[in-house]
Simulated assay, not measured.
Amino acid sequence: MYAIFESGGKQHKVNKGQIIRLEKINLKIGKIIESKKILMLVNNKKIYFGNPFCLNKKILMEIIKHDRYKKIIIYKFKRRKHFKKKQGHRQWFTDVKILDII
């Protein structure tokens, strides 16, 4: 059984027990959350499609940790204009464990 759901403007394919990385969720570690934005659910031979989301279906997730990705460097340069700009960015993320797909 697997599901495709939406979180943070992105779509994720998940199985029960899987650990995935989502955009930052502002809740404490250990908190159990649920997502009702399920786009598709496959259960053995039955397939449920949402329009846009499946009704009466949800995914239970537990927040494991919050952290930041490795730093990326944004470098802008225009030749012969004496223009250089260097900027770094570290994006926040949240690791969650899929407890159940209902």
Rank of each mutant, 00 (worst) to 15 (best):
Y2A: 06
E34K: 12
K24E: 10
Q18C: 07
E62N: 03
L41V: 04
K57C: 12
K57P: 07
I73E: 05
I74E: 09
E6T: 03
I47W: 09
F53P: 02
K45D: 15
G30F: 00
Q87S: 13
I98N: 00
K71R: 15
K28G: 14
K16Y: 05
K13Y: 05
F53G: 06
I25W: 05
N15K: 10
Y48C: 09
L27E: 15
I98Q: 01
I20N: 02
N44K: 15
I4V: 14
K78N: 11
H89A: 05
F83S: 11
G17A: 09
S35W: 02
F83A: 06
Q91E: 14
N51L: 11
G30M: 01
K76C: 08
F53W: 12
L60F: 10
K13C: 05
I63H: 04
R90H: 08
L99Y: 03
H89P: 00
I59T: 00
L27S: 13
K57I: 13
R68H: 11
I4D: 01
K58Y: 09
E34Q: 14
M1W: 06
H89Y: 14
Y75V: 07
Y48M: 10
K31M: 11
K13R: 13
I25Q: 00
E6Q: 10
F49Y: 15
M40P: 01
V96W: 05
D100R: 05
Q11Y: 11
K46P: 03
K10L: 14
D67W: 10
K57Y: 13
H66E: 08
K31I: 12
I33E: 05
I20M: 08
I98C: 00
H82V: 07
R68T: 11
E23I: 06
I20W: 04
K13S: 09
K86F: 04
G30S: 03
I33W: 05
Y2G: 00
L55W: 09
I20E: 04
I102W: 01
G88E: 03
K10H: 08
I20T: 10
R79Q: 11
I72N: 04
Y48D: 12
R21I: 14
Y2F: 13
K97M: 10
G88L: 03
M40W: 02
G17S: 07
K31N: 13
K16S: 07
I101T: 01
I19C: 07
K45S: 15
R90G: 03
K16P: 01
L39S: 01
K76W: 06
K28N: 15
N26V: 08
F93W: 06
I29C: 01
L55C: 09
G8I: 06
